[in-house]
């Protein structure tokens, strides 16, 4: 069972609505993340790769709010610049999972029968593996780079989207007005675009927001394991990994990039839940 599937069940299930304050805070966090992605150079106090050996391993303080690393590079600046890779990889992976999942789900749901059975068994097999393991396998074959990272993570989450979308397609197909449209001679393509897709979009988008958080978490984990971008560029996962050796005397190195991942994933999850609440989907 993938993490995304678990999250979807937990978060998507009946429960309290998110308080508006939480949703606003989460939105602000994601907007801040977006700002970091778009204009990191304007937000970061220093260039991310400017070494300053005399300022190595400084703890958080006025000059360096999050401290510095072994080469005296400003950690805040590195986290801000790292957001670009972390968030973009997360977004790209989610988009990939959504598109791939939609293709499989729509085909399976619309055609049904043998096609549906075969596709869903494949999806079942994929769901049986933890997504991280799938992604790890994929990236081991592909080799490491941000693009391949996004592909690996995206592929590993296709199954969850496929399953959700197929379910919705089946639900929509059974609705009376779709049957009416079929009877009145609307062709399959038209049926798909005019009646099915709009009805499936909502839940899929809500899942996509959740999926973004999960994809970021997975891509950060893979980066942490060394499958990320090439140095000196570093995403959050790599930054956290780089600080491991100095955990005892420089706690900030791993902590802040880790917090950045956690906060962003949490924000994405909260918004995903809020979207589901609004749309009344479960």
């Amino acid at each position: 069972m993938t993490l995304l599937a678990v999250l979807q069940r937990r978060v998507g299930g009946p429960g309290r609505r998110m308080p508006p304050v939480t949703v606003i805070a989460a939105t602000l966090i994601l907007l801040a993340g977006l700002a970091c992605v778009v204009v990191p150079g304007h937000l970061a106090p220093h260039p991310p790769d400017a070494v300053a050996p005399e300022a190595a391993l400084l703890p958080p303080g006025w000059g360096h709010p999050l401290g510095t690393d072994e080469l005296g590079r400003d950690l805040l600046s590195r986290v801000i610049h790292g957001s670009r890779l972390s968030l973009l990889v997360g977004a790209a992976a989610t988009l990939l999972a959504l598109l791939g999942g939609a293709a499989i789900g729509l085909v399976a749901g619309l055609f049904g029968g043998l096609v549906d059975a075969v596709l869903m068994r494949v999806v079942d097999v994929m769901l049986a593996f933890p997504a991280l393991l799938l992604a790890l396998g994929a990236i081991s074959v592909l080799g490491s780079s941000p693009t391949r990272l996004a592909i690996a993570v995206g592929v590993s989450n296709v199954a969850t989207f496929a399953r959700l979308i197929r379910g919705d397609v089946l639900r929509v197909r059974g609705l009376a007005y779709v049957t009416a449209a079929t009877v009145s001679g609307v062709r399959p393509a038209g049926l798909l675009l005019r009646y099915v897709v709009p009805n499936v979009c909502g839940p899929a988008l809500a899942l996509a927001v959740l999926g973004f958080g999960v994809a970021m978490l997975e891509s950060s984990s893979l980066s942490f394991l060394g499958f990320g971008p090439q140095p000196p560029v570093a995403d959050w996962g790599m930054l956290a990994a780089a600080g491991r050796d100095n955990l005892a005397d420089a706690w900030w190195l791993s902590t802040f990039p880790g917090v950045a991942v956690a906060v962003t994933v949490l924000a994405a999850t909260i918004i995903g839940k809020a979207v589901q609440d609004r749309r009344g989907v479960q």
Binding site: A50, V51, P53, E70, L71, G226, P231
Partner: peptide, 17 residues
């Protein structure tokens, strides 16, 4: 070589600068 030992990965980044 990665994973590097003796912080040779950081050394590479320092030399790069």
């Amino acid at each position: 070589v990665s994973p590097a030992r003796e912080q040779r990965d950081l050394l590479a980044q320092l030399v790069q600068q």
